[in-house]
């Protein structure tokens, strides 16, 4: 299993590098991680600190950027009005969750089919499915854009959710198939001999063994959707806009970019990503290669 990556040589019987190596790898890791760290620091800076030359590393943290992500002063300067960012965060969560749920249900069934009841030309189907995922999204988006405009789905939740379900489907199928392929068929055969129906085998034998796999696939797909930009840019309206699009619009106005505010949006946007990366550590390899590489 992939978890072996996280078990280093020593745990498997070889060289110990010790604290010296921690220092070395740690400094390189910190340099590598610095861009993220800097953004998080910027999010806690006041406007003056954020734009200071030379850059300040020590400062008194402020939460005003986080407040102004959601609230800003109205034109009259008195009452606080919503910036709409709350809605965009809700949209991101809602659209990603619905799209992924749909893709996961359909994808798991299909993966089980591809794994246990191979069709004629099984590999061709799987190849076509993977190809639809590997395509530059810009190719797919042109006709979908026209199609959505004709059917009036453009800018609606249903349109975006359907699109994200389709976007996640190839990923779910390949991931879940790689998990199903790893299960021992003997258990299923034994259950069949004991009189279990096909449905029983799927629901009571296979799925319970794949709880972790299902969770990994779901969470991975959630992050991919959460991060998605191009589809959202072209197919969401003012009401259904997601956070990445809102961020890109904030940066779009060249002159008056409020970096502290932008950094705060990103920091909030990244919290689920950090959580997920931590949760998924043993499935990262499989996830980033769409289930094509398992170990």
């Amino acid at each position: 299993m992939f978890a072996a990556i996280f078990k280093s040589r020593k745990e498997r019987g070889l060289r110990e590098a010790g604290w010296g190596w921690t220092l070395f790898a740690g400094s390189i890791g910190l340099i590598y991680f610095f861009p993220v760290l800097w953004i998080i620091m910027t999010a806690f800076k006041t406007r003056a600190d954020a734009l200071a030359t030379p850059p300040v590393f020590l400062f008194t943290p402020t939460f005003e950027n986080f407040v102004s992500v959601f609230l800003r002063l109205s034109q009259t300067g008195q009452e606080a009005v919503s910036t709409g960012m709350g809605l965009y965060f809700f949209n991101s969560v809602f659209v990603a969750a619905s799209g992924v749920l749909l893709a996961l249900v359909i994808g798991t069934l299909a993966a089980y089919g591809f794994s246990r009841y191979p069709l004629k030309g099984n590999d061709t189907y799987l190849f076509v499915i993977l190809t639809t995922r590997m395509l530059p999204p810009i190719i797919v988006i042109i006709p979908i854009f026209l199609m959505f405009r004709l059917t009036g789905l453009s800018g609606s939740y249903i349109g975006v959710i359907l699109l994200y379900a389709a976007f996640n489907l190839p990923f779910s199928i390949w991931m879940m198939k790689s998990f199903f392929d790893e299960l021992s068929i003997d258990v299923e055969d034994a259950a069949r001999l004991d009189g279990s129906s096909d449905r029983g085998v799927f629901f009571r034998i296979c799925l319970p063994q794949l709880k972790a796999g299902l969770a990994a696939t779901a969470v991975f797909a959630l992050i991919l959707t959460w991060n998605e930009f191009l589809f959202a840019l072209l197919l969401t309206g003012t009401e259904t806009r997601t956070v990445p699009v809102a961020m890109a619009r904030t940066i779009g106005g060249e002159l008056g970019v409020d970096w502290g505010l932008l950094a705060a949006i990103i920091t909030l946007f990244l919290i689920p990503v950090f959580a997920v990366t931590y949760l998924l550590q043993n499935h990262l390899l499989r996830g980033v290669t769409f289930g094509t590489i398992k170990k």
């Binding site: 010790g18 790898a25 890791g29 550590q281």
Partner: peptide, 22 residues
């Protein structure tokens, strides 16, 4: 290699690829 905090540092370094392009 094996060293203390290897897993934690690995997570730190692996984070960028999970970030959004935006």
């Amino acid at each position: 290699k094996k060293f203390p905090f290897r897993r934690e540092l690995l997570m730190l370094v692996l984070t960028p690829m999970m970030l959004s392009f935006v």
